Simulated assay, not measured.
Amino acid sequence: MKYVTLNNGVQMPMLGLGTWDLRGEEGKQAIINALDVGYRLIDTAKMYGNEDIVGQAIVESGITRSEIFITTKLNSSCLGYSQAKKGIEQSLKELQTDYIDLLLIHEPYVKSLDMYKAMKEAYQQKKVRAIGISNFQGQHYDYFIQNCGMIPAVHQIESHVYHSQLKFKQRMEKDSVQMESWASFTEGRKDIFHEPLLMEIANKYHKSVAQIALAYLIQNGIVVIPKTIHKERMIENMDVFDIVLSQDDMYRIQTLDLGQSLFHWYD
């Protein structure tokens, strides 16, 4: 596993498990399987309604808590300072932990700055090791950065070969904000696994298309959290850190970029 050092010195794994639609016993077992094969970053959110199974899976895995990096996100149920404070305490309880490694605001809200005030307090109280944002674009990102009082450690946004957002990443780098990708495989919006160019490059490196898609993001310095319930896919997704794509192949993959969201999240 490779790690990236955030702007406050905290180390974050560059690859983790996304859990957005994991539910119930099957979902819990998928998280346990991921931890068993070596995942150490688990990404959840209040919006997903599964913080409880994430907490249960981590406890049942038997892995020391300090070895696992937990990310969760506050949503519209936490609008405002006091609501965010309550939301943080609820997340700690659901996750069965004394601290959250990374806490994000799930999307731009009218009261994002009030929510962030509660997050900064939780950070100072060591209930949270790092704080950040998700899905802030354009003027929302600019306004937040200018007024937040503490630069986010991480910004999680849609990023994949068809919409890598590398130009936006350059802006984040100037702000010392680490970029993290959601939808690394497009969540079915594009048939990425049969993309001819990626198939050609995968054959060249004796890897799968999924591995090449992840390696492209990681080589660009982007943290990835692909979601899967299949243990063999988890193992495959983990086996990407020996891939070094040539500059020519990186450029060729970049030609797939459509320059627009596949999800209309930001409309």
Rank of each mutant, 00 (worst) to 15 (best):
residue 2 K to W: 07
residue 3 Y to G: 08
residue 4 V to Y: 11
residue 5 T to Q: 11
residue 6 L to M: 08
residue 12 M to R: 02
residue 12 M to I: 13
residue 16 G to F: 04
residue 16 G to V: 05
residue 19 T to W: 02
residue 20 W to P: 00
residue 27 G to L: 02
residue 34 A to Q: 04
residue 42 I to G: 00
residue 45 A to R: 00
residue 48 Y to S: 00
residue 48 Y to T: 00
residue 56 Q to Y: 02
residue 57 A to T: 00
residue 60 E to L: 07
residue 62 G to Y: 04
residue 65 R to A: 09
residue 80 G to L: 01
residue 80 G to C: 02
residue 82 S to T: 12
residue 85 K to Y: 10
residue 91 S to W: 03
residue 93 K to C: 04
residue 98 D to V: 09
residue 98 D to A: 10
residue 99 Y to K: 06
residue 99 Y to W: 15
residue 102 L to P: 02
residue 104 L to M: 07
residue 105 I to T: 04
residue 106 H to T: 01
residue 107 E to P: 04
residue 109 Y to L: 09
residue 109 Y to D: 05
residue 119 M to E: 13
residue 121 E to M: 08
residue 124 Q to K: 10
residue 130 A to P: 04
residue 136 F to Q: 06
residue 137 Q to D: 14
residue 140 H to M: 14
residue 142 D to Q: 12
residue 149 G to C: 10
residue 150 M to Y: 11
residue 154 V to D: 02
residue 155 H to V: 08
residue 158 E to H: 08
residue 161 V to Q: 04
residue 161 V to M: 12
residue 163 H to K: 13
residue 163 H to M: 14
residue 165 Q to T: 08
residue 166 L to E: 04
residue 166 L to A: 02
residue 169 K to G: 05
residue 178 Q to G: 07
residue 180 E to F: 02
residue 182 W to M: 00
residue 193 F to E: 11
residue 197 L to K: 13
residue 197 L to D: 02
residue 199 M to S: 15
residue 199 M to F: 06
residue 203 N to M: 11
residue 207 K to R: 15
residue 210 A to S: 12
residue 210 A to Q: 06
residue 217 L to H: 03
residue 221 G to V: 06
residue 228 T to A: 05
residue 237 N to T: 10
residue 239 D to K: 12
residue 251 Y to H: 10
residue 256 L to N: 05
residue 256 L to F: 09
